[in-house]
Design a protein around this nucleic acid. Structure first.
Lengths: 100, 100
DNA sequence: GCCTATCTATAGACACTCTACATGTAGAAC
DNA sequence: GTTCTACATGTAGAGTGTCTATAGATAGGC
């Protein structure tokens, strides 16, 4: 989850609601992450120093916009390589061997 | 986890300890799954009807050997496709360029 | 006798996700 | 003018599963 959030915030800062929409869009509509997952996760990541937030009012609605910090960029790089390693490991167990 | 267990039991029945070693071997030593994870998981899978077990005594030591049931084979196929879909989805968010 | 490897198993802590709830604005539909 | 949908944030509590730590037991090497 953390990696996904950091990833959608890589290109541009977004607020919570937009992040959820971005996740859906990027995954082709598959990912449907509930607010009860996203908002606490964003706070956790801010607490960890990977994100920074600012309040803004757009069209009478208040938004909390999150952006990646430099520590967040480093963390994202780590999450990416961790994911690749993880995916490779799982695949090595799960997928039948073709070259044995 | 469930998928990994079903997968190592696909070719041949194994007992818990051997399953842990098989997971390590297949993953190139990366996966180090503790017994506190494996044994409850095996019971859960047996409860679900995906595995069946038999006790055997080999060299004075008691072993509980698990084997895949036909329902387990079906479940494994489902887990495999679920994993592929999941991995594709995560990758599409994490690495947008590769999944366009 | 002691240590390591083999073998199974449980209890409790820990972390995270999900459901459901709680609150409020803006604009379109009727 | 009221109702519905979309926008927008947030918390509480349940549920699930993994990990750490612990426990007991046999076999074989030193």
């Amino acid at each position: 989850m953390d990696a996904l959030l950091l990833s959608v915030l890589e290109a541009e800062p977004l607020h919570g609601y937009a992040i959820i929409e971005a996740l859906q869009a990027r995954s082709g509509g598959v990912l449907n992450v509930p607010t009860g997952t996203v908002y606490p996760a964003l706070r956790r990541l801010e607490q960890a120093g990977y994100l920074a937030s600012e309040w803004a009012t757009v069209g009478g609605r208040k938004r909390r916009t999150y952006r990646l910090t430099s520590a967040g960029r480093t963390a994202l790089a780590g999450e990416r390589s961790a994911w690749r390693e993880f995916a490779t490991t799982i695949a090595s167990v799960l997928e039948p061997r073709t070259a044995e």
